[in-house]
Design a protein around this nucleic acid. Sequence first.
DNA 1: GCAATGGTTCGATTAAGATCGAACCATGAG
DNA 2: CTCATGGTTCGATCTTAATCGAACCATTGC
Lengths: 221, 221
Amino acid sequence: MRESPDIARIAALVADPARCSMLLALMDGRALTATELAGLAGITKQTASSHLAKLVDSEVLRMEAQGRHRYFQLGGPHVAALLEALMVFSSDSVPPLRTGPKDFALRRARVCYDHLAGEMGVALHDRMRGGGWLSDDLTVTGKGWAHLAAIGLTPAELPRSNRPLCRSCLDWSQRRHHLAGLVGKMILDHILALSWARRLPASRVIAFTPDGERRFLDWLR
Amino acid sequence: MRESPDIARIAALVADPARCSMLLALMDGRALTATELAGLAGITKQTASSHLAKLVDSEVLRMEAQGRHRYFQLGGPHVAALLEALMVFSSDSVPPLRTGPKDFALRRARVCYDHLAGEMGVALHDRMRGGGWLSDDLTVTGKGWAHLAAIGLTPAELPRSNRPLCRSCLDWSQRRHHLAGLVGKMILDHILALSWARRLPASRVIAFTPDGERRFLDWLR
DNA sequence: GCAATGGTTCGATTAAGATCGAACCATGAG
DNA sequence: CTCATGGTTCGATCTTAATCGAACCATTGC
């Protein structure tokens, strides 16, 4: 029972609507300033300041001061994972939500923190697990590296960080896992660098070009 | 973002220390009664009742009434996933609670009215549900009858009664479901008839012979 | 130096909800 | 039927924390 206050404390940080809005606005991995976040959440800057201080204090957010601005971003992939885990409930309880073209695009491919999510993200994950590119303990196999090399990715391209190489992240729209971790980030970065897809501004949508989508799916074949 | 209130609402359900304790106690998939959960959380039963109602209302928990007891268990794997995502922030281990009979044999296998309960009963139930021997509405499938035929059971062996063929019965030592109903009775009777096990006198214990246990578990494989 | 802008601190107000005592309903045992 | 037990409902109390106005601090641009 002694451990419950800790996890309850974290949950309480997400439980406030204002803080929740801010966290969701940061889901794409960008860094926003305090006043921007206040505006998005519909609260004054005093209130936002109080909220942000709590979030930074618990390492749910990271803060970086630049001049007279303070930029806030998610504390790490585990924060995004938590938010996605919560979204599973919403997508479950209200299934017939308005499904416009933008909603469709989001389900198709989007960024989750810094890696690929949605149908395309799940397809990638499934192929890597099913095709033996990843072992059971989520390390990239020799076969996996061979396939990655086919599109120009080598271990040298990995960002330097102590984050785990691969993680499974639950996808709220697909309700299945997609690939997170450094390898997930590396692959998404590469997809963008190859111009197979581009990020739509002010949204989490990853828009594949027809040709890029064909090449991506071919690569998974 | 219109979805923020919804996900904040779910987070708020986990944000209370008392509710959190209860949820963590249910992480292993067992079902516990309201008073047990109240005791674990260190609150009175009135308070617990209020908490549990909210959790059931939001489908975070599922409730099953049996006699004057109400058994609560997690609403699904996504609830466990959410709790795990929260635990990433503070890695503590949750010591499991020991409940139920102290008698090992009783916990292993016993008769519940006229069918098999305890670890062996739960194993049977899990295998029949998970292996497609039973459909979702608890009728025996063709595959199920094929497996039953392998040990000599056919629909002709069914006792005549208007009782339902299959029922899920909550196991009080395992806190999970075992198989009740006419099929449950038929299987237990057959296990005794094959001398895979025998009833201990003046007790509810079902004592498997070493050979019988091996055959039974082989059949479930 | 001085205004303008981004952000924080403080204090008072207010709303939400966790808690428990007491009374009540439902079920099972004898 | 009667009693004991598991669980809920109601009402009152009390704690927590979200919110904003006002004042204050910090940085940049002029």
